[in-house]
Design a protein around this nucleic acid. Structure first.
Lengths: 265, 265
DNA sequence: AAAACATGGTGCAACTAGCGCAACACTAGT
DNA sequence: ACTAGTGTTGCGCTAGTTGCACCATGTTTT
């Protein structure tokens, strides 16, 4: 039951668990936060412990408390710190490109990076139509994300299999048609410059993605468009070419580093 | 030497100090992170302490380390958590409005909130011209921020004086023409709906701001435009009216809560 | 109203985990 | 090799965290 030597300190771990709880699933009505007892029960920890930890986190601004309901939410400090991350810089530069993509096809567009065997969505631009759940900050297993193929496009087949092995046994098997078929798709990214996946999360019909490279040419991110409109289904190739081109432009913008960034529109 | 009763635990405090160091000033070349010894010295703590703390923070994803330079930066977890904050929701809804404002006058536009006696910038949209330093996540004393007047517009004079007292003695006196003059400006916000400040941070010539209200009509944020072009100086009133109108529209959008948000453009 | 049941916070002894010192690997400059 | 720097680890000692109990407020029953 005890974890391996590479383990963070007990206090930090507890705090992180609390923050993760407060992050919630995002799509629920947990917008007004959570109470101490509920968190303690969900964590299997003492109320007192959680109460004291939350007080400390509040002082530091990591969480904030509604004065009326006495419930806790994630705090402003997280926002302030996050603005200084490398991911934030990436989003800042990419946003105009991803927005342009979303506007061009009136579909949801995303910017994602690889984190372990998960795909983390950094930016999601909804289409003009329905209200869409917030995907920013959400991690999804590589096989299930539209951007997954683009992010792993240039990995060795062996390493890809290894990575897939870490999630396939525990993951669902309905939405993934075997890892062999999945691997074959990686070739398509290398040749065509974009990937098309037919089964996706949410209510989308298909996903189109393309890799984004840093100044050294390595794939560091991916942009994707999740196709939900029936009218777009016939244009998958056209969308793919557009996504790939946008990804290429974005890669150039990232390569420039600190130079002035032009709006693409 | 011992701090007051309201104090977070030692471990958490240390971790927060480290994160704050890693956040840096943003405008320097600290983009490639900081080393253990440098952080330890800057904090007046033991190297070993910092080393171990950073390892824990890295495991939790709060910081990440460049494998080559072995320097630490803020991590992806902060970004993921921040996306779930209330501030993030505010930015998501406000972004189109602030962008429209920035495009209309081709000047930098901001979204700010009040945090203690500081103004925290949540969103900064640069003009099309020069490269601009990143203001997101930066806190500035109320008197020095363009949005300060708008954020305090409907406070009791007594409470405002009290708040200003907490920073004036320690603050600079060059950029603020006395608190009396400052207070008089608050009236202007209440009547005209926007504030104009002549002296600002950075290389701007003036700042125009207007208050944003939540569904209960309380001021929860402010948007502002920092005027740097000489050509805009003669249009301060015109800009003010536009900023106030945009703030009003944004307030309505926030009031709708979860309803679908239309793009203002 | 009082009872019953919540939730959030506190005092205190036992104990564990973090602290600082020092010594250790490791890379890089002269 | 020497020096000088960085980052990591072992270990005794101390300080901070833990968990139990109890208490202080609200909120729902009966």
């Amino acid at each position: 039951m005890t974890d391996n030597p590479p383990m963070s300190s007990a206090g930090l771990r507890r705090d992180m668990e609390i923050l993760e709880i407060l992050a919630g699933h995002g799509d629920e009505r947990d917008a007004d936060g959570f109470g101490v007892s509920w968190i303690a029960q969900r964590l299997g920890r003492e109320k007192s412990q959680v109460s004291r930890a939350l007080r400390g986190l509040e002082i530091e601004g990591m969480v904030e408390r509604d004065p009326l309901t006495r419930r806790y939410r994630l705090g402003w400090r997280l926002f302030a710190l996050a603005a200084r991350t490398e991911q934030s810089r990436l989003v800042r530069i990419s946003a105009p490109y991803v927005r342009r993509l979303a506007a061009a096809f009136d579909e949801d567009a995303y910017l994602c990076v690889l984190r372990g065997n998960m795909v983390l969505t950094l930016l999601s631009v909804p289409s003009s139509r329905a209200y869409h759940r917030v995907w920013e900050g959400v991690s999804v297993p590589v096989i299930m994300a539209a951007a997954g193929r683009s992010l792993l496009a240039e990995w060795d087949e062996e390493r890809v299999r290894e990575l897939l092995g870490t999630i396939l046994p525990a993951g669902l098997d309905g939405s993934v048609g075997g890892s062999d078929e999945w691997l074959k798709e990686l070739d398509h990214v290398r040749t065509a410059g974009y990937a098309v996946s037919d089964v996706e999360l949410d209510d989308s019909e298909a996903g189109v993605s393309a890799p984004v490279r840093d100044h050294r040419g390595l794939i560091t991110a991916a942009i994707s468009v999740s196709v939900t409109r029936a009218a777009s289904l016939g244009r998958l190739h056209e969308i793919g070419v557009s996504v790939a081109e946008t990804a290429r432009e974005l890669s150039c913008a990232l390569g420039d580093g600190k130079s002035a960034w032009r709006r693409p529109d």
